[in-house]
Computed example of a mutant assay.
Amino acid sequence: MNLGLSSWQFWAVLSAGFAALTAIFAKVGVENVNSDFATLIRTVVILLIVAAIVAATGQFQAPGSISGRTYLFLVLSGMATGASWLCYFRALKLGQAAQVAPIDKLSVVLIAVFGALFLGERLSGTNWLGVALIAAGAVLVASRV
């Protein structure tokens, strides 16, 4: 696996690590605050960090240079992200991080299914077996028997 700065694998592994930290930090963070307000605080922090990165690296684009289709799908993605975060923080407020996070990661299974259905992505039999194992593993990790 190529783990250079320009590889998707490198950034995916970092994403997984930060997602794990997100669950742990968020679980502690929502202890004494409403989960929706906690999500607002998190969102403001993210906005400030990403704005600083875009400014520091000169990646700002003129709003007029972006197509309407791109705006539409980025807005839809933002709405889905917001809904996901609100639900995730509410689940963390009510449940244990070790149970909530695996169920949240069922998104991996849904992404495979949606990618196949809506984007025409093709997965092999081995890939689908992996998707099924992820689903089964998430349920097993989240269950308290």
Rank of each mutant, 00 (worst) to 15 (best):
Gln61Arg: 14
Arg69Ala: 09
Ile49Arg: 00
Arg42Met: 13
Gln99Thr: 14
Val45Arg: 05
Arg42Ile: 13
Phe25Ser: 04
Thr126Met: 08
Ser65Pro: 01
Arg122Pro: 00
Phe89Cys: 03
Met79Ala: 15
Phe73Val: 11
Gly29Gln: 09
Gly4Asp: 03
Leu40Gln: 11
Ser7Glu: 03
Ala132Ser: 10
Arg42Gly: 11
Leu119Trp: 07
Lys27Thr: 09
Ser67Ile: 10
Lys93Gly: 13
Ala101Ile: 13
Val139Arg: 01
Ser124Phe: 06
Arg144Asp: 12
Thr39Gln: 04
Gly58Tyr: 06
Val131Pro: 09
Gly64Cys: 00
Ser143Thr: 12
Val54Tyr: 04
Gly120Met: 01
Gly120Asp: 05
Ile103Trp: 03
Asn127Arg: 01
Phe89Thr: 05
Val131Ile: 10
Gln59Met: 11
Gly137Thr: 08
Leu3Val: 08
Arg42His: 11
Val100Glu: 09
Ile103Cys: 08
Ser84Ala: 09
Val13Gly: 02
Val108Thr: 09
Phe89Trp: 04
Lys93Met: 15
Ser65Ala: 07
Gly68Arg: 04
Ala26Gly: 06
Gly125Glu: 05
Glu121Cys: 05
Val113Gln: 06
Val50Leu: 13
Leu92Ile: 09
Leu74Thr: 12
Asn2Pro: 15
Tyr71Gln: 04
Ala80Asp: 06
Val113Leu: 13
Trp85Gly: 05
Gly130Leu: 11
Leu94Ala: 13
Lys27Gly: 14
Tyr71His: 03
Asn2Met: 00
Val54Ser: 00
Ile24Trp: 03
Val44Lys: 03
Ala142Arg: 07
Ala116Leu: 02
Val145Asp: 10
Ala97Arg: 06
Thr39Tyr: 04
Leu48Pro: 11
Leu3Asp: 00
Leu76Ala: 13
Gly95Glu: 10
Gly4Tyr: 01
Ser65Glu: 07
Val33Tyr: 09
Gly58His: 04
Gly58Lys: 04
Met1Phe: 08
Phe89Pro: 04
Ala83Asn: 04
Gln9Tyr: 01
Ser77Ile: 09
Gly125Pro: 10
Leu47Met: 15
Leu106Met: 15
Leu3Phe: 08
Ile46Leu: 15
Gly130Pro: 11
Ala12Arg: 00
Val28Glu: 03
Trp85Phe: 12
Cys87Ala: 15
Ala52Ile: 02
Leu72Ile: 02
Leu92Ser: 05
Ala23Ser: 13
Gly4Glu: 01
Ala142Lys: 07
Met79His: 02
Ala136Pro: 08
Ala23Met: 10
Leu14Val: 14
Ala51Cys: 10
Ile134Cys: 03
Val44Asp: 00
Ala138Met: 08
Ala97Glu: 15
Leu92Asn: 02
Gly137Lys: 09
Leu106Cys: 11
Gly68Val: 09
Gly125Ala: 11
Ala91His: 02
Gly17Asn: 06
Ser15His: 12
Ala80Met: 10
